[in-house]
Design a protein around this nucleic acid. Sequence first.
DNA 1: TAGATTGTTAATCGATTAACAATC
DNA 2: TAGATTGTTAATCGATTAACAATC
Lengths: 227, 227
Amino acid sequence: MIPRNIINLGVFELEKEISQAVIRRMPRYYRYLGELIDAGVERISSGDLSSRMNVTASQIRQDLNNFGGFGQQGYGYNVKYLYEEIGKILGLCERHSIIILGAGNLGQALANYVDFEKFGFAIIALFDVNPDLKGTKIRGIKIHMLEELDEFTRSHKVDIAALTLPKSKADTVASHLVSLGITAIWNFAHVDLELPDKNVIVENVHLSDSLMQLSYNIVKDKPYQRF
Amino acid sequence: MIPRNIINLGVFELEKEISQAVIRRMPRYYRYLGELIDAGVERISSGDLSSRMNVTASQIRQDLNNFGGFGQQGYGYNVKYLYEEIGKILGLCERHSIIILGAGNLGQALANYVDFEKFGFAIIALFDVNPDLKGTKIRGIKIHMLEELDEFTRSHKVDIAALTLPKSKADTVASHLVSLGITAIWNFAHVDLELPDKNVIVENVHLSDSLMQLSYNIVKDKPYQRF
DNA sequence: TAGATTGTTAATCGATTAACAATC
DNA sequence: TAGATTGTTAATCGATTAACAATC
C-alpha cells in the first residue's frame, strides 16, 4: 500500500510531486490503451505506441516511470495490465459521486453522458433554481431545488460538484459548496473561482477559452491592423 | 498590416511561432481585462494584474511582448486598449460561423450558449441523423439532416465545425468535413481525430480526460494497491 | 545466447523568472 | 526631475529528448 506518487527507492521513500504536464497525458494513454484492448492487441512497445500517438517513445517511458516500472525489457508493455494500472493511478477504480449545479442545457448534457459511469463516475443529482424543473428527471436522475442542497449533502456522500451555471452565480454557489465540505469542483462557469479554501481541487473547462484558442490558430497567419 | 505573429525588428521581420503555452493564457488575460473594464478600471500594471491572476508579472510582460509592446513605462497598460488588442490577436473581431455536427444534448447546449456571439462566433446550423429532429429549431437555429450537409457547405461559408457526436462516427464525419473544405474543427468526441489533411486545425475538448485529471488530483495522496 | 526494449541517466531544449536599463 | 513600470536580456528552472547499460 503506497501512495501513488511515492516512488519506493529501496530503504527510502521519496515523495515526488508529478507535474501537471504528465497528468494531462495520462488520460490520453489510457484512451489509446483502451482502443488497443478493443482491437485485441496484447502487448505494445513504447516505440509502437509513440508512432500511433505522435509522441516520443522517450516521453512515454519517462511518463510511466513516474509511477513505476510497468514494462519488461525485450517485451514491452502488457496492454491490459498497463491499462488497469493507469486506471488505478487516475482513481478510476474508486467510485466518485457527482452532483451537478445548474440543470440548464450543459448540466443536462453532462447528466445524459453515459460514458462517465464506465470510469466510475456516478451523477447522483442535479440542482437548479428554476421551479419548473422541480422533480423532473434526466435519465432517472432527479433535479432538486437549490435550497435542498444542504440537506442533500448531509445525507449523501458527494465527491465532485460540477458547476454548470451562469458565472454570476458561480462564486457564491462554489463557496457554499466548500462550506458544505465539498473538496472537488469541476467548473464549467466562465470564471476562475475564488474559494475560501485553497485545498479544494478545481478543474476548469472553459469552453470560450478553448474556442478562442481555436480562433487564434485560424487567424494567426492573417494580417491584422494593429494601430 | 502585419501578421500577428511577426515581430518587426527594424529592417527585418522575424516570424516567430508563438508557443501554445502562451496562447492558452491569452484568453485568460482577455477575461480578466474584461472584468476590469466592467469594474471601471482604466489602467493596470503587470504587477497588479499578476497578483489578481496568480501569475508572475514577468510572465505577463513576456507573454504580451510576443505580440508587441502594449504598455507604457511608468504607467502600465490601458485596460480597454489591451483588451481590444488581445481580442484582435485572438481573432475575435472577425466573424466566425460555426456548424454543429450532432444535435444531441451537448450540441444543443452549445447552440444555446449565447455568450459565444459576444466574441464573434455565430452558430448557423446543426446537423443530425435523427429524423425526429428534422426541421426543429434551437434558439432559432435550424437542425438539418446530415445528408443536407454538402449542399449547405456549398451555399454557406463555414469557418468552424463543432463535433458533438459519438466517437464511432467522429472520424468519418470529420474526414468528410475536410473534403468539403472545412479547415477548423472543434472536437468534443472522445477520440483524437485522424484527418487526411494535416493543415486542418483541431481543438479538442475531451471532457472525460478533464474529469480523469480531476479524479487523479482527488486520489493522488491516497494509498493504493499496485500489485 | 542474441535481439529487443525497458528503465534511467545525461544532454538538450524551451519556458519561466529575475534583473535592470530604458523611458514615460 | 523623481518615481514607476515597461520591454528585454540574462539566469534559472523544468520538461523533453537522446543515449545506453541493464535485463528479459
